[in-house]
Simulated scan of single mutants.
Amino acid sequence: MLVVLAFIVIFHITSIALLFISTIDNAWWVGDNFSVDIWRSCFTNVTNTVCKDIVSSNPSYQAIQTIQATMILATILCCFGFFSFILQLFRLKQGERFVLTATIQILSCLCVMIGVSIYTSMHDQFHPELKPDAGRFGYSFVIAWIAFAFTLTNSIMYLILRKRK
């Protein structure tokens, strides 16, 4: 049972790390001379890189704020779920399930899914200065989808897990 708990802790910490990386890093949409995320756009020329924040004059600013909020909320919920798991590990009686932790993880999973789905459907509208076919989804976008799968798997593991000797 100790090996299973260690695996779950490592899996959960990995989910948290993936959420932090995907939310913070500037590689949701990349091209030869630019990289874009949910916070700013960076353009590289021969000598330097110029970054500018996404401004409220952007026609899709509310959708971008929704993505920002859901990714931040997913990260916070995943961290809170980990602390909930640690508390429940020592507080629950044997044979009880980690339902609270599973619920928090499924909420985190849903937040990631909502944010990344919105970005998938509207990414070409967020940065009108870029041609729609000028780039491709970056590794932060892929990591966000992997984090979705990890948090979903985590929530299922918590629902199945029973505290045993």
Rank of each mutant, 00 (worst) to 15 (best):
I67L: 08
I160A: 12
A149P: 03
E96M: 14
I146K: 01
C42P: 11
I160E: 08
Q88T: 13
A102P: 10
T23W: 00
L152D: 01
S56F: 11
G31R: 00
S41R: 02
I67H: 01
F85Q: 12
V46E: 01
Q62P: 00
S155A: 15
Q68M: 04
F126T: 01
A102V: 13
F20S: 13
P128R: 14
I114S: 06
D37P: 11
L5W: 03
L110Y: 08
V142H: 02
Q105Y: 10
V55R: 08
Y61H: 12
C42H: 08
V30L: 03
V36N: 10
F148P: 11
S108R: 10
M122A: 12
I143N: 02
R164S: 10
F141Y: 14
S108P: 06
F83C: 13
G135N: 06
N45Q: 11
G115K: 06
S15Q: 09
L2T: 13
R91L: 15
A17F: 06
T23M: 03
I143G: 02
T14D: 08
D53M: 09
A6R: 02
I10R: 03
I13F: 09
E129R: 02
S35C: 10
F43D: 15
M122P: 01
I76H: 01
T66H: 00
D25T: 14
T14S: 10
K131V: 14
W28H: 01
I106Q: 05
G95E: 02
T75I: 03
V9F: 01
D133V: 09
V46G: 00
M122G: 06
S35A: 14
